[in-house]
Design a protein around this nucleic acid. Structure first.
Length: 707
DNA sequence: GACCTGCTGCGGTTTG
């Protein structure tokens, strides 16, 4: 039995906790982790005890008397570190093992203490690790050269992202300074591609996946309220109010602006009918202290009901206590996101998860149903693959060089070439990129060595250096000295305009462009704030499922009457196309003025098709939500051009180069790509912004079916 | 009309 294998202090912890039995993932992890030093990916649903699954055996196994930090826990979020800190500290209480939080907002005195006596468990963010490598390379060695385990929480949030490439590179750098090898344990509830997850540890062949597929029962309810214009339909808000007023609720309305709209409007209704006043908003623009208050309120009160309208800030990991209901307004952009969000409710043993899916237009309804069906089928979208992350290589080259205060060029090349994150980048490519960095003065060459150049110093000494993602410049929003939040500058930010923030309505009284400050006072009415973000990518599988639903005859028992009616109308609209094979046919609607092409495929392929249409000079309007193209073209000409589009892909490098020269902002998705030679920038755009092979496949196989 | 994530070190001042 797994329990018997654990050390006595850990068994005592379990007895004290009163656990009757271990969860399946815990039993599996305990036997495996205690028996071998392999890497593991622990995959099981939200709130299934994955943290304990990793730490119970690790804490049993390791001799913490050795000097140096023994276990490094890496988290994508500060809030998650703060949350996990208490759990892990409690686990360690019988063991005399120190647990240290290490992130930008953690207590500096406690960090300094760790330098004097490096031991125990450290909880850290990738950026803090990066900063330590850059500024205190000596301490990295002192702290982390005797590691036994690296635990990566919510590993899916790293896989297939730039931040993941960075973390994987940092782990490779940690391996270099370790005397003995350490094992990597990844935790997640939503892994879409197990091979990718295994590769993340840096050694697929020594990584095993422990998987518990048991799902929690979810009670799902679809609601349809067709919206007109910019604001949410009043009927939806009324219905939402009634469904949520007597519960503890999280609402995910997909954008920061909408989150504010929902919080303010529900609160207004509640005020009118003398309901509870605990309506909050929670997203990246709300001040951190306000957010922490909201989290604390939700976590530590058992009696009062509340309602938090939030974005993905409350999607991951953080256990915010007992949530009875999760509401999604309009479809999620991924299945993974849907699973994580619904996982915020019913976290206690035996509790069910309740999910309300509201839709305000037909496409969103269709997407919502598609996501739900794919979830039921067990599908999670695989991560994006970035074979050659040239931009992150630039960042890591700068970081390594700065950390070494200059390094032999051959040694730098060797370190990059042997780093698991860059194994697909060729030696000559690395050399070319580094030479270019010398050319633009990010590096300076001194005989055999490179050091950071004069221009490079400005870059690496910036506070913004440690992260690989870009953020928009924000203005502080302040009410009589009290900070409410930070919002990006937009045309809406002018004096006398009203905005919503932190679930309250404000009038802007003064905008100080010098110190980037917006002074506000409370007021009665206002518009939701505008944010200029780029939406998330939709996977082609979701669009294919939406298409399938249109040609299905199935009546879904989870839909309410208005949803059923709307789906019926959609099916009728699309019945004019004689679609026989859903995999290779797509509708082209011919009307008097223009053509409408319903592509029913993912965002990246649609993007690539848009580029191709631009190259051949076909004017079009594109709508992401419905995945449609409106074309000003005759059907004869377009069907002919359609067949020729795929051929353009043979020369795509040239096309992208031309397009990029005309639109340099195309690279704005990459913070570090701007330091690459132009031909590498083009390669980067080609391989990450567009999907060339996917589009080739799509174009060569897809036939247009006219009405 | 469109999500999210994190952050050094120094010198100065304030507070217990």
């Amino acid at each position: 039995m797994a329990f018997q294998l654990l050390s006595e202090p850990i068994r005592k912890y379990i007895r004290d906790k009163g656990w009757e039995q271990l969860r399946p993932i815990q039993t599996a992890a305990i036997t495996r982790i205690l028996a071998s030093d392999e890497n593991y990916i622990l995959a099981s649903r939200t709130a299934s005890g994955k943290t304990e699954a990793a730490f119970l055996p690790i804490l049993s196994k390791i001799d913490f008397k050795e000097s140096g930090v023994q276990v490094l826990y890496v988290s994508p979020l500060i809030a998650l570190i703060n949350d996990q800190f208490y759990r892990i500290e409690e686990l360690c209480q019988n063991l005399d093992i120190s647990v240290t939080k290490w992130h930008g907002e953690a207590n500096k005195t406690l960090k300094d203490k760790l330098f004097k006596q490096p031991n125990g468990v450290v909880l850290i963010t990738p950026e803090s690790l990066e900063a330590m490598f850059v500024n205190k390379p000596y301490f990295v060695k002192q702290l982390f050269s005797n590691l036994k385990y690296v635990v990566i929480d919510e590993i899916h949030s790293f896989i297939g992202t730039d931040r993941g490439v960075q973390l994987k590179s940092i782990i490779a750098r940690l391996k270099k300074i370790n005397n003995h090898s350490f094992s990597v344990i990844g935790l997640s509830a939503t892994i879409g591609d197990y091979d990718e997850a295994k590769g993340f540890t840096g050694d697929s062949s020594k990584t095993k996946v422990l998987l518990d597929r048991t799902a929690k029962e979810i009670k799902v309810l679809f609601r349809y309220f067709k919206g007109e214009g910019d604001e949410l339909p009043l009927d939806l808000l009324k219905d939402l109010y009634i469904e949520t007023k007597d519960n503890k609720v999280l609402i995910f309305p997909n954008s920061r602006g909408r989150a504010e709209e929902v919080a303010v409007k529900l609160k207004k209704i509640s005020d009118r009918v003398k309901g509870h006043p605990y309506y909050f908003s929670h997203h990246s623009s709300v001040d951190r202290e306000v957010r922490e208050y909201v989290e604390h309120f939700a976590k530590n009160n058992f009696r009062l009901n509340f309602c938090i309208a939030c974005t993905s800030t409350l999607e991951l990991g953080i256990d915010i206590g007992s949530v009875d209901e999760v509401v999604q307004i309009d479809a999620t952009h991924s299945i993974a996101s849907l699973i994580q969000r619904v996982g915020r409710s019913g976290r206690k043993e035996g509790e069910r998860s309740n999910l309300y899916l509201y839709a305000t237009n037909k496409w969103s309804l269709l997407q919502s149903i598609a996501c739900w069906l794919l979830y039921k089928e067990g599908f999670i979208e695989p991560p994006q693959k970035k074979e050659k992350p040239y931009d992150i290589l630039v960042h890591q080259a700068l970081s390594i060089t700065k950390g070494h205060s200059g390094i032999k060029l051959t040694e730098l090349i060797h370190q990059l070439k042997t780093n698991a994150s860059f194994s697909n980048i060729e030696l000559n490519e690395i050399e070319e990129i580094l030479n270019y960095l010398i050319e633009i003065d990010l590096f300076e060459r001194l005989q055999n060595e490179v050091i950071i150049g004069v221009t490079g110093e400005r870059v690496v000494n910036s506070r913004d250096f440690y992260s690989v993602f870009k953020v928009e410049e924000a203005y502080k929003v302040v009410n009589s000295g009290q900070k409410i939040g930070e919002i990006p500058f937009s045309p809406q930010i002018i004096e006398d305009e009203n905005i919503l923030l932190s679930a309250k309505i404000w009038k802007i009284v003064f905008v100080d462009h010098q110190s980037k400050k917006i002074e506000v006072i409370p007021t009665k009415d206002g518009k939701k704030p505008l944010f200029s973000g780029s939406g998330a990518l939709i996977h082609q599988k979701i669009r294919e499922k939406m298409f399938e639903i249109l040609y299905d005859r199935i009546d879904y028992d989870f839909l309410d009457q208005p949803s059923c009616d709307e789906i019926l109308v959609l099916r009728k609209d699309f019945s004019i196309f004689n679609i026989k094979d859903l995999t290779i046919e797509r509708p082209l609607l011919v009307s008097e003025k223009y053509l409408t092409f319903f592509s029913f495929t993912g965002t990246s392929i649609n993007r690539t098709i848009r580029l191709l249409l631009k190259i051949v000079g076909i004017n079009h309007r594109y709508d992401e939500e419905s995945s449609t193209f409106e074309l000003e073209e005759s059907k004869e000409l377009f069907t002919k051009q359609w067949k020729a589009l795929a051929a353009l892909l043979d020369n795509i490098d040239l096309h992208i180069t031309t397009h990029f020269r005309e639109n340099p902002s195309l690279l704005s998705f990459s913070k570090w790509g701007i330091y690459l030679p132009e031909d590498y920038q083009v390669k980067l755009i080609k391989n990450t912004f567009f999907d060339i092979e996917g589009t080739r496949n799509y174009l060569t196989n897809t036939n247009l079916i006219l009405n």
